[in-house]
């Protein structure tokens, strides 16, 4: 067998040790304002260029973890290091990241172009200087014809593309996606998965992808982090060693099925004790 589950707690065992560490989460924990322990003792090293999926039952704190990496919401314990990043005047790491939320989160009053321009506008880049880059990312997500459309004129999948383009416009090194395709139909989802993979291979980013879909995570990632139910801990760190580019052939291969089986097993382990509570 190609894959082996790492027994809990998984101590930042990097399957691909050749990669340089980009983000290091050390002993990270999060306590919500009400006193609920959402995350405990999360250790994770994200290597440069990895495509990591974080998989877990709903409420396991995976979104919280992603938001903490993005600097949204405080850290209750532990540290997040960015070993390769420069630091700004306040000693904060320059995170260099794009974030795609669960919802497209577009400004309804702004055109596709202006929605994508937003991060650059907030950074003080003039419209003229930003134009070339915006056109570039609009082309990347295949929305050339819709630059002047308003979000209400777009389908769900197209809105999500705009959201991705907006994350990409700042040329991030790390792309964080928080269940971005959960609300989309299966066909649109497949298509966006393929587009995301293609872009990742072209652009050499690091991707952290939060999802609750085993199939999606196996298809996309080179590594799957499985988290337990609340308090969220990492209970498995699974390398998905299948080569890229992956396509439909991979999706119907026995190798893919085997990865899915192993991942599902780990996920069921994560669900133990919470199955009743959830439903």
């Amino acid at each position: 067998m190609i894959v082996e589950a790492v027994p809990p707690p998984a101590r930042s065992a990097i399957p691909n040790e050749r990669r340089r560490a980009l983000i290091k989460l050390n002993n990270l924990s999060k306590i919500y304002r009400g006193g609920t322990l959402a995350l405990s003792d999360v250790d994770l090293t994200v290597g440069d260029g990895e495509f990591i999926s974080i998989l877990g039952p709903s409420g396991c704190g995976k979104s919280t973890l992603l938001r903490m990496i993005a600097g949204l919401g405080g850290i209750s314990g532990g540290t997040i290091d960015w070993p390769q990043s420069r630091y700004d005047a306040h000693g904060e790491p320059i995170r260099d990241l794009g974030f795609v939320f669960q919802e497209p989160t577009l400004m309804p009053w702004a055109t596709v172009f202006n929605n994508i321009y937003l991060p650059l506008k907030l950074a003080g880049v003039s419209r003229r200087d930003a134009k070339a880059r915006i056109d570039e990312v609009i082309a990347m997500v295949g929305l050339e014809k819709f630059a002047d459309a308003y979000p209400r004129q777009l389908s769900g999948g197209m809105k999500m593309r705009v959201s991705i383009a907006r994350a990409l416009v700042v040329k991030p090194r790390v792309l964080l996606l928080d269940e971005p395709f959960a609300a989309l139909d299966e066909i649109t989802r497949f298509r966006l998965n393929n587009d995301l993979l293609r872009l990742w291979q072209d652009q050499k980013w690091t991707v952290i992808f939060v999802t609750h879909s085993v199939f999606e995570s196996v298809y996309l990632s080179n590594r799957i982090i499985v988290m337990s139910a609340r308090p969220g801990r990492i209970i498995a760190d699974l390398p998905i060693t299948a080569p890229y580019p992956r396509g439909e052939a991979f999706r119907i291969s026995s190798e893919y099925n085997e990865f899915c089986r192993i991942t599902s097993n780990e996920l069921s382990r994560a669900m133990v004790g919470v199955a009743e509570e959830e439903h």
């Binding site: 938001r67 949204l72 939320f101 991060p119 907030l122 700042v170």
Partner: peptide
Amino acid sequence: VDHNLRNLFDLYGASRFQ
């Protein structure tokens, strides 16, 4: 204001005026 859009503006370090 949409809560998610607020987060987005936080993420990109928008000033109070922006």
